[in-house]
Simulated scan of single mutants.
Amino acid sequence: MLTRRIYGWLRLLTAAVCIVSLTHRMLWGMGSQTLASQNFFAYLTIQSNLAFAALTIVAGIIGLRHSEDPAWLTSARALVLSWTITAGLAFSIIVWQAGVRGIPITVPWSDVVLHYVLPGFGVIAWLIGPGRTSASWRVVPYVLLYPALWGIFTIWRGRIIGWYPYYFLDPRQVSGLPEMVISSLLALSIFAVVATALVLSSRVRVRMPPFGEISSRPAPAARRRRVLDVLRHVRRAR
């Protein structure tokens, strides 16, 4: 139970880091004059990390009070983690494409935390965190629902205001509608692959020993001495 409580506090710390990073990213974006205030929350990364912070706070409280996560929390974590991981992968592709096209792009530390550090920590916590139950396969189609609706709304909104959060959603920045559709379908397939991997991994138990259990085990030399003592007693009995 001690391990579970420590894990609960780590969840709350992770949520705090996420909130600080989101705040810095917003302030940095406003100061760089590259982002209009009304568009900050239009990014899938921002929306998914807001969900990540809120859910991690809830998960942290549950971790402090209960020895095991309820099934709904595991499903919710799989949903949100699928979104944040895929957003990080998409961000990497965007940065790479910007370099290929010779477009200068500045990545603040908050972007690194939101796109790489937090998703990475989320994967580690998903794999070895205590008290996680198995995720349902029904998570996969629900994972796709949010980005699909977000994409439809974003394209509709972009046609009205002339702004898109990601270049591949803008027909003017790609070769045309076919490339935009193919890029969008590729993005959805990545969401599906990530969600499938999370569900599969949730069904493989990786149990970490409780704190103090490792130190309580006898050292190899002590175990050898015990074996020799047993052999001596056996020989004397003969």
Rank of each mutant, 00 (worst) to 15 (best):
I105G: 02
V20N: 03
R138K: 09
A15Q: 08
Y146P: 06
P178D: 10
E213A: 14
M208Y: 10
W72A: 02
V193A: 09
P147T: 12
Q47V: 15
R159W: 12
L177Y: 04
L127E: 11
Y43C: 02
Y164D: 07
V113F: 11
A90H: 01
S75Y: 08
W72M: 05
G122Q: 08
W96V: 12
T56C: 08
Y164T: 11
V227T: 14
L231N: 11
A148V: 15
E213M: 10
P220V: 13
T106R: 05
L10F: 13
L44Q: 09
T133V: 13
G120A: 09
H66P: 06
P147C: 07
V143G: 05
Y146H: 07
C18A: 15
Q38T: 15
I6R: 02
R205W: 05
T133K: 03
S37C: 04
N49V: 14
G176M: 05
A148H: 00
H115Y: 09
L89A: 04
L22M: 12
F40G: 08
W83I: 09
S216K: 14
C18G: 06
L27S: 11
Q97W: 04
Y166C: 08
A195L: 10
L149D: 07
V123C: 05
R238K: 11
L12A: 02
I161L: 08
T74N: 01
I46G: 02
A54D: 07
L144R: 03
S48Q: 07
V80P: 04
L2Y: 12
M1W: 11
F91V: 06
R138F: 13
R217Y: 10
I152F: 05
L79Y: 02
L22G: 11
W126M: 11
L188K: 00
M1P: 11
R207C: 08
W126Q: 09
L185W: 01
P119Y: 00
I93W: 02
D229A: 15
V58A: 11
Q173T: 14
G29Q: 00
A76F: 03
V194R: 00
Q38D: 15
L118I: 15
G129K: 10
I161V: 15
R5E: 01
